[in-house]
């Protein structure tokens, strides 16, 4: 009964969101588009990093791979195939990276993933300059903001469903156990490396698709745009703010922060990085487990 109400409510909200481009101005739609992109990034990031606590800064590596694949192939292949190829490239890179790094623990993993994003960016730049002799590419796809927005919305729904399904399956429990103590998890019968790799790959593939779907928005792209490390940091902060171990956590963090960042970058473009850093520190300091956990604590505290 309660579940039916939730499903109906969810569908109603979804219908409203899908209709939003007809109700909003172009600017409003663009804002909603960007927000949906970041909610999807943060949710996909948290799918792997939330329970396992492997903090990945490789988000933009996959995001950029997705965007670049579209830039290179959009005039060669039909669009759905371009998305498929982008997803496959993201998946392949994720598996290679996962196999070589998921043995790293703690801060080494963080540093490696950050390095990976830079490596991918430098490689693409080098390739474009030396081999294809073009730095920057144009994307001519007949998409308007709302078309991109609808694709992202669909991807977000799929991402939330995957995340929800994992969370209630035995793999969700296993991932939390891995975050706590990998040795104990292994002795309980969990294939720890296999499960980490699978989750990292799913998460990275979704992130790749976010980049691919958003690419037509820019018309012109170059490595410094689509491999901008700020994307990785924003995703991380959003997920942390909302609480990466809850299904809705990344969304709760992404919505206010996205709006705040839009406002900051419009009004204080020169100080954006500093403000971002300061905010990051405050979130980690005051709400290490995120808004949702903080609210629960407050409620529990008030009740007792």
């Amino acid at each position: 009964m309660k579940q039916t109400v939730f499903i109906l409510l969810g569908l109603a909200v979804l219908a409203l969101l899908a209709a939003a481009p007809y109700l909003l101005s172009d600017y409003g739609t663009a804002l909603l588009l960007g927000m949906t992109g970041y909610i999807t990034l943060a949710t996909a990031w948290a799918m792997f990093s939330g329970p396992t606590r492997y903090v990945s800064l490789a988000t933009v590596a996959f995001f950029g791979i997705g965007a670049y694949t579209v830039a290179v192939l959009s005039e060669v292949l039909p669009y759905p195939l371009v998305l498929l190829v982008a997803a496959l490239i993201g998946l392949t890179v994720a598996i290679i990276v996962g196999l070589s790094t998921l043995r790293l623990a703690g801060v080494y993993f963080v540093i490696f993933t950050f390095g990976l994003a830079e490596l991918v960016r430098q490689t693409v730049t080098w390739w474009e300059v030396n081999v294809t002799e073009t730095l920057g590419r144009y994307i001519f796809l007949p998409f308007e903001g709302r078309h991109i927005y609808w694709q992202l919305l669909a991807l977000l729904v799929v991402t939330l469903l995957i995340s929800w399904w994992i969370g209630r399956s035995r793999y969700g429990l296993a991932l939390k156990a891995i975050g706590d103590d990998e040795t104990v998890a292994e002795h309980a019968g969990i294939n720890v490396p296999g499960l980490k790799l699978a989750l990292f790959a799913i998460s990275a593939t979704i992130i790749t698709l976010v980049g691919a779907i958003q690419a037509p928005r820019w018309t012109y792209i170059e490595p410094s745009i689509v491999f901008n490390p700020t994307v990785s940091f924003l995703t991380l902060i959003m997920a942390l703010l909302g609480g990466p171990s809850k299904l809705w956590g990344p969304m709760v963090g992404a919505i206010p922060l996205f709006l705040l960042f839009e406002w900051l970058s419009a009004n204080f473009p020169d100080h954006f990085s500093i403000l971002l850093g300061a905010l990051f520190i405050m979130i980690v300091f005051f709400m290490p487990k995120g808004i949702l956990a903080k609210l629960e604590d407050l409620r529990a505290g008030g009740a007792s």
Binding site: R170, A174, K176, D180, D181, T183, V184, G189, I190, S245
Partner: peptide, 20 residues
């Protein structure tokens, strides 16, 4: 070596879910 983010029941459930 208890798993601190899991409840007592979940600690035990884990082995049922992935055991023999």
């Amino acid at each position: 070596r208890p798993l601190p983010t899991l409840s007592v029941a979940e600690n035990v459930l884990l082995s049922f879910a992935f055991g023999r």
